[in-house]
Design a protein around this nucleic acid. Structure first.
Lengths: 108, 108
DNA sequence: CTATCATTCAACCGATAGGTAAAGTGTATT
DNA sequence: AATACACTTTACCTATCGGTTGAATGATAG
């Protein structure tokens, strides 16, 4: 598999989990330490730490150490890749789909 | 969980598999019977049928029966939802990220 | 009706995902 | 040096995923 394929695999599977999408939303607005990231969820810190690892491996977030804390923020590159993938098909499919639907209605 | 959340879960996890992304790409160009969809892959028809079910449940494809065959085509609505989700954050994150990077470089 | 073609469903399997609890690591603080 | 704080890693559990084979279904052809 190409590296792009592997990247898309990890980006989309990272985005498939609602907790991770929510984390992403929050660290996109403001850089947060892991402890703060974890607060809204009724999950253990270990679970959040795992979610962050998945997001980091998909390059959707970056971490930097500041003293004892690890500060987390969203990284736009991966989101741009996923978004580009979807945009590529969006317009084309919409056109084809509209023509097909019109045809099916006409011949029903 | 809201229905939008559930939809995004199923859309992104459907897109996380490279075989499914490839199928999607092909049925976006041309409506194909299941047997044709299956041909390029070294998987059983049953496996492809499962992949199609996942895509259908995510509303990324639609099927219609024509005689013995089931014709498969891409449906743009779900792709638009996922694309909208990503676009929403793309610009915002890019801005924030650029400012943060500039700050970190200045203070390194 | 029966046979055949196109596809799906059911049962099963090994691997991966998401969660926990508990031990381990890195960085201040005293 | 010892303790505390902020995570991360490990070991484990259960559920889901992606695949297989083989039986079942739906639609047409003879």
């Amino acid at each position: 598999m190409t590296s792009t394929t592997l990247q898309l695999n990890s980006i989309f599977s990272a985005l498939a989990d609602p907790t991770r999408r929510d984390i992403l939303k929050r660290v996109g607005k403001k850089e947060l330490p892991v402890g703060e990231v974890a607060k809204p969820y009724k999950l253990t810190l270990a679970a959040i730490s795992k979610h962050l690892k998945v997001l980091e491996e998909a390059k959707l977030i970056l971490k930097r150490r500041q003293g004892k804390q690890q500060l987390v923020h969203a990284s736009p590159a991966a989101i741009r890749d996923a978004s580009a993938f979807l945009k590529l098909y969006e317009a084309e499919w919409t056109d084809r789909f509209d023509r097909l639907e019109a045809y099916l209605i006409k011949n029903k």
